[in-house]
Design a protein around this nucleic acid. Structure first.
Lengths: 159, 159
DNA sequence: GTATCTGCAAACCCTTTGCAATAAG
DNA sequence: CTTATTGCAAAGGGTTTGCAGATAC
């Protein structure tokens, strides 16, 4: 199985300075320290990644700024708290993350063959969420919608 | 944190014999053996559980018919193949399962406080799924919708 | 200088697997 | 009798943690 269409959409880099500054500000406010490791991790996420797991991040940092997985795992809660990242539990075994800073809520299509993730927006989900919660007396803090199957590229590949 | 409203809805027991026979039939067809361990696991699921994880099942069997976790883990793929169970990846760290035999597709409300799971049906999700897939050229094999927050019982509890 | 952060390695938790003994057909 | 299944204990994979040395402030 050798599939290789792109999983990572290159990110706009205009706001990078601004977003980095926001992250540094968050750290200072909370009394956390601004370390080169945390900066490298944040920069890598802002620059390259919409979706990733810890291993991908670790490998991509390995060349320029090698950082231990322990430090990555320890940085992630900070990135989440700062509003830069969110956890995404794709149902394939382990935790994934996605950059959320400056992006809007969306849902995922997950290809079972090439493991690509595609995004879409479905505004009606919000209405559905509200209606269900009203019916059940539930106080919502979030929702998730995911579709899995075979993406268009993989459908046309022979094998 | 001591919360204790019911997580498990008692199952109808009229069809139990019939469902067990279906499972035995499935095993025989496939050349698998009908063992007392597999029967105890299937019976426990049919009788008591809509949602569970391996640990809960292990503990509940412990008294009457102690079965090793290894055997439970090995039985689960069979139960899934037989159409009795489905995996549910609630985003709280590990795999859960739900009985599907004779039940219709539904979605989940997950309480962050008492960890109860509530179910609801939202037929419009199927239409949404189809529309998105048509737009993206995606071939769907399934979808999932989950809402998390605080359930009505937990909202009225002080603390 | 002092408290936080880092890397390392060990610990953890859930799940899977190798193996010898057991049991189904 | 033959082969699948079981329980045990060890191995796996992802994630967390204790600790001593490094570093931000």
């Amino acid at each position: 199985m050798a599939v290789s269409h792109p999983k990572i959409s290159p990110a706009p880099s205009g706001e990078l300075v601004e977003e980095m500054e926001a992250f540094r500000g968050f750290l200072r406010e909370r009394g956390y320290r601004v370390t080169k490791e945390r900066e490298a991790i944040a920069k890598s996420i802002l620059r390259n990644r919409d979706h990733f797991d810890v291993d991908e991040l670790f490998l991509s940092l390995r060349n320029k700024t090698p950082i231990s997985k322990a430090s990555i795992y320890r940085a992630i809660p900070l990135l989440i708290e700062s509003g830069l990242l969110a956890e995404v539990y794709l149902e394939n075994g382990h935790m994934h993350y996605e950059r959320v800073y400056g992006r809007e809520h969306h849902s995922h299509l997950r290809c079972l063959k090439c493991h690509s993730i595609f995004e879409f927006s479905a505004p009606e989900l919000t209405g559905l969420e509200k209606r269900i919660c009203r019916q059940e007396g539930f106080k919502s803090q979030g929702h998730k919608f995911e579709i899995w199957g075979i993406c268009s590229v993989c459908q046309t590949e022979n094998n």
